[in-house]
């Protein structure tokens, strides 16, 4: 096959860019949704249950960011 430089906006590139954009969207939506839930008083355990992941996983990923955001995190039943 002759090596060629693919177009950055071709059909294949569009599909790959969609993956990048969807990942970014999912990440940002996750950050925003968890922050909103925690501000509304949800516990780590409740957020984890809603996301279908372990409490440890969600805590590890978001704990520092939400502390920086100044959110009073619920300890009880966490």
């Amino acid at each position: 096959m002759t090596p060629h430089l693919p177009e950055p906006t071709g059909a294949e590139a569009d599909d790959l860019a969609a993956v990048v954009a969807l990942r970014e969207l999912a990440d940002r939506l996750e950050d925003a949704a968890i922050e909103r839930a925690m501000r509304a008083g949800w516990s780590w355990g409740q957020v984890a249950e809603a996301l279908g992941v372990t409490r440890q996983a969600v805590h590890k990923k978001h704990h520092r960011r939400l502390e920086t955001a100044g959110i009073e995190l619920r300890r009880r039943n966490a």
């Binding site: 860019a17 969609a18 969207l25 940002r28 922050e35 920086t68 955001a69």
Partner: peptide, 19 residues
Amino acid sequence: HALRAAGIEPVAEERLHAT
């Protein structure tokens, strides 16, 4: 463009606001 390629409409910025 990239999101439309996957059939997704852009999500409003305010819903994505996070620290």
